[in-house]
Design a protein around this nucleic acid. Structure first.
Lengths: 109, 109
DNA sequence: CATTTATATCGCAATATTACGATTATTTTT
DNA sequence: AAAAATAATCGTAATATTGCGATATAAATG
């Protein structure tokens, strides 16, 4: 046991869960914010900005990249990470739909 | 180690991460969708709707409740769960702000 | 009041996540 | 080419999550 039963849920539910899980960590939220705010793409500056080891940051970046939320391009010895505009837009819209599907409180509770 | 270093992140980052983590599971997404779609609040119908054991559903409901996303009111022998309108709205806005802070692709990657 | 119904909680096994030191690979710099 | 800088990967320890059977709790029903 201990494994998420993905087979009993819809494609959409699983996909949304994977993307949200990728964001659902303070370090990865911080990384995304850094990438967004420094309008130039930052690389290993994250290691000095956030207080985490280089291996840890690299691992978080990998997860964000696996989820498709960011993309990295090699720039000499360092790597330049930035938001993947398409998946960012897709997730934004999907989440928007999800949150808007709730039409306010009902009478029961 | 293996413990998230919450102390090095901002309140906002930690709060958002906790809320997103609560949603970031297909079963909990399915539960939220069920609660939203059945405009009457459902109770243990979730157990028959989704293919998970009663103990598992109850645990997922607890997590959603702990995160403040849903609230349960006792209704006789059963419990009626529905969305917490305030936290739902708050999270929606916070996420909206987060996603909107990205102003499209830059020149670098 | 015994029985059924509806949920919650406990305890456990399987697995996933988080963090980091050490190492490796690659590119700059000297 | 050696040294330094940058980032990825490996291995590992600590902890968290997921799922469920078994059990507990509480209300409804007979």
């Amino acid at each position: 046991m201990g494994v998420t039963k993905t087979e009993i849920f819809t494609e959409q539910q699983n996909r949304l869960a994977v993307l949200l899980k990728a964001i659902a960590h303070p370090a990865r939220i911080a990384i995304l914010q850094e990438i967004i705010n420094s309008n130039a793409c930052i690389c290993g500056d994250l290691v000095s900005e956030l207080g985490l080891a280089q291996a840890t940051i690299s691992q978080h970046l990998k997860e964000l990249k696996n989820a498709g939320l960011i993309q990295g391009t090699i720039e000499g010895a360092s790597v330049c990470y930035c938001i993947n505009p398409d998946s960012w837009e897709t997730l934004k819209n999907e989440l928007d739909g999800f949150f808007k599907s709730y039409k306010g409180p009902t009478t029961c509770c």
